[in-house]
């Protein structure tokens, strides 16, 4: 019995770490959606670009400067974030702005095309061979009452919580955040009220790119290899965002963690004790998603939006 509890605790911890990665990608989806009502299907690819930029900064610095390891990873992180700022601004310029007056579908299609182009572009620049990233923590872990806590996983979880809280605060308590919400609700009225709509759009794309870069930096040591297909994880983060309530920032972390935990526990203990669970492992997440949406169509933390037509 005791071992069942430790096993479950272990799986739940691992699931929370996995779910935190989903949450970070979902957060990117939600940020852009909240301000522009666009679903950015290239969010996973933004993460992939972040992971690659981080990898090359670390490689470059390692080769040339011989800085201590801690600094190296810190500079990798800072460098990727700086790159994300420029990249997010650029994406707003080439995708969001020219299509702003078109239907939302056009922009969504543009993000899907961008996802494909980014994959091709990265493999042209970096080569198609998967790369082996280093982990800032090596394989460090500690034992907490029989449960193995990996330092990397712990960092991922803390990172996700901090970022989600920061953006929650930003959106609900700061002038810029409220301006963003206003823009999403009615861009024309917001503009008339003096909200710099163009800057709001640019800012939100920059935020999404930063979140993506950070999740890329955190995911790559956990995934052991980085390749141009790692962006497909975005397709798993999307149901997390829906489950949590699309448009709700805390919903990202709730949805992400629920899905992550379900995934690891069903693959682990549940499959071990009930063999039939093995057969439905790959659909269990979707069963939960549909069940939740039947009870709460807006997701767990989503709020119903009423639109005047």
């Amino acid at each position: 019995m005791n071992s069942l509890i430790t096993d479950l605790a272990q799986e739940i911890f691992s699931g929370i770490a996995l779910g935190s990665i989903y949450a970070l990608i979902a957060l990117g989806f939600i940020l852009i959606f909240k301000a522009t009502e666009v679903v950015n299907f290239a969010q996973g690819e933004l993460m992939m670009v972040g992971a690659y930029v981080n990898f090359f900064i670390i490689q470059g610095i390692m080769g040339d400067l011989h800085v201590p390891t801690g600094w190296m990873f810190l500079m990798g992180l800072v460098g990727s974030i700086l790159f994300a700022i420029v990249f997010g601004w650029f994406l707003d310029l080439v995708i969001n702005r020219p299509l702003r007056d078109e239907s939302v579908f056009s922009i969504i299609m543009a993000t899907i095309s961008m996802a494909i182009m980014l994959r091709a572009l990265v493999s042209m620049i970096a080569g198609s061979e998967s790369l082996v990233p280093q982990s800032p923590f090596g394989g460090a872990y500690f034992n907490l009452g029989g449960v193995i806590i990996s330092v990397l996983d712990l960092t991922i979880i803390i990172g996700a919580i901090v970022l989600v809280s920061a953006f929650y605060y930003f959106f609900n308590k700061t002038r810029w955040g409220i301006a963003m919400q206003a823009t999403s609700e009615d861009p024309i009225a917001a503009q008339l009220m003096g909200v710099p709509v163009k800057r709001v759009y640019a800012l939100v794309w920059i935020f999404a790119a930063i979140v993506a870069a950070i999740s890329g930096v955190l995911l790559s040591p956990r995934a052991s290899l980085i390749d141009t297909n790692m962006g497909f994880l975005g397709l798993k983060a999307f149901p997390a965002a829906v489950l949590g309530g699309f448009g709700s920032i805390p919903g990202a972390i709730v949805g992400g963690i629920i899905l992550g935990v379900i995934e690891t526990v069903s693959m682990g203990t549940l499959s071990f004790h009930f063999h039939w669970v093995k057969e439905i492992n790959d659909i269990i997440v979707w069963i939960v998603l549909i069940a939740v949406l039947m009870i709460r169509p807006t997701g767990i933390l989503g709020t119903e939006e009423i639109k005047k037509v």
């Binding site: 995911l219 693959m267 682990g268």
Partner: peptide, 10 residues
């Protein structure tokens, strides 16, 4: 898949 904690524990 990127997480194998469940399988390894089993």
């Amino acid at each position: 898949a990127t997480d194998f904690a469940g399988q390894v524990m089993n």
